[in-house]
Simulated scan of single mutants.
Amino acid sequence: MSFAAAAALTLLAGCSRDNEIVDAAGGIAVTRSACPALAIPDYTGDVTLFNPPASRDSRAIDVVATITNLRTTCNDNGSDLASAVTFDVLARREAGSEAREVTLPYFVTVVRGGNAVVAKRLGRVTLRFAEGQQRATAQAAASSVVSKAAATLPEDVRRQITRRRKPGDADAAVDPMANPQVRAAVSRASFEMLVGFQLDQDQLRYNVTR
């Protein structure tokens, strides 16, 4: 599955060539990837199913599943940044010995600047418990496409961030990110690819308050 961000949270970066900021002469080197960072939003990395569904008693826990082992690649050839992610879902059931399938929904969202959702896609992953087994594993995948132009810092901002400052200069100790315009430009060019279970309100409340 794939989706495009036409406007073009533990993080993993997929590539770092086109938007690299490095002071090769020494000092502090900053490497910024244009590719979307990958993360699992808080409270969405696991889900608990109950039997009966309305119960929240620990004795009613039916299945617990967790997203783990996120892996990403980023192809920055061409005008777009194409990211692909795979991840594992590990599950444990509390009771039952017969073979069983459990299907869980998950989401993949592209966020710009930390809070603007530019694309979202839902998927489903099916876990198959073998007869007599309490554990099951499944793998899922997703992808996103972000405009390279939208994820690339303007040249004037790059110059402000990478300009060499000598001791004694009036702004030698000033962080370029303290400039609101620089900070805003970096935020606009920053994208995240977020993966998690698509929880209903009761499931999310359980994760937050348990």
Rank of each mutant, 00 (worst) to 15 (best):
V182N: 07
R158D: 03
A25E: 15
V182F: 08
A82C: 04
V186G: 03
V117L: 14
A25G: 13
L104V: 09
P167W: 04
A189I: 00
A29K: 12
C74D: 01
T86V: 00
D76K: 07
G114L: 04
P154L: 07
A142Q: 00
A116M: 14
A172H: 12
A7M: 15
A138H: 06
L38H: 00
R158L: 05
Q133R: 10
D200V: 06
D23V: 09
D57P: 12
F87M: 07
S83G: 01
D202Y: 07
L127H: 00
E131P: 07
G113Y: 02
A6Y: 14
A99K: 05
F50E: 02
I28W: 11
A8N: 13
G114Q: 10
T66F: 07
D76F: 07
V195I: 15
N69E: 15
A60P: 04
A54C: 10
A37L: 15
T73L: 02
Q133A: 11
I61V: 14
N207T: 10
V157Q: 06
S79Y: 15
D57Q: 15
A99L: 06
T109Y: 08
T209N: 15
G132L: 12
S147G: 12
P41M: 01
D88M: 10
A184K: 14
A99Q: 09
A34E: 05
Y206K: 07
A29Q: 15
D175I: 06
S147C: 04
Q133N: 10
I28E: 12
K166I: 14
D80C: 08
P41E: 07
S55V: 08
A116T: 15
N19E: 12
A185F: 02
I40L: 09
R92P: 00
R124L: 14
T72E: 02
I40A: 02
V108A: 07
P36Q: 13
D202N: 15
G26K: 02
A189Q: 06
F107M: 04
V30M: 15
T162R: 05
F191M: 06
A141G: 11
V111N: 01
E131K: 14
S143V: 06
R165K: 06
S147P: 05
